[in-house]
Simulated scan of single mutants.
Amino acid sequence: MVDGEGDNAFWTKIGAAWEHKDGKGFNILLTAMPLNGRLVIRQPKPVEDQR
């Protein structure tokens, strides 16, 4: 979930997504629901960029 815009955005982890083997969909596991209804799914960053 993302609150705010641009450099002021704050990301809250509420779940995870895994791409299907055929690349045509995702399995999504939510551990919480966003209160504002906005959910953003992006490609994961490479491990070295996750600091």
Rank of each mutant, 00 (worst) to 15 (best):
P34N: 01
R51F: 09
F26H: 09
I14R: 06
N36L: 07
D7H: 05
D3R: 09
W11M: 12
G6K: 00
A16D: 08
G25T: 06
K13N: 11
K45L: 09
H20C: 01
I28T: 13
T12R: 15
G37T: 03
L39T: 06
T31K: 12
K24N: 06
K13H: 08
N36I: 12
L39Y: 06
I28V: 15
N36R: 13
M33K: 05
K21C: 01
G4E: 11
D49M: 04
F10E: 14
V47I: 06
I14H: 04
W18E: 14
E48R: 07
L30H: 02
K13C: 09
G25H: 11
L30F: 00
H20G: 03
L30M: 09
H20A: 10
K21W: 11
W18K: 12
P44F: 03
W18C: 04
K13M: 13
Q43S: 08
K45E: 03
E48K: 12
T12S: 15
N8Y: 12
K45M: 14
R42M: 13
T31D: 14
P46Y: 09
M33V: 03
L30V: 04
G25M: 07
L29Q: 14
D7E: 09
W18R: 15
D3E: 13
V47W: 06
V40F: 03
L35C: 01
D7T: 05
M1G: 13
I28W: 05
V40T: 14
N8D: 07
W18G: 10
N36D: 08
I41Y: 10
I41V: 04
I41P: 03
V40M: 12
E48I: 15
A16Y: 08
F10Q: 14
E48N: 04
K45I: 05
P44W: 11
D22G: 05
D3Q: 15
L39D: 06
G4Q: 06
L35S: 05
N27G: 10
T31E: 15
G23R: 04
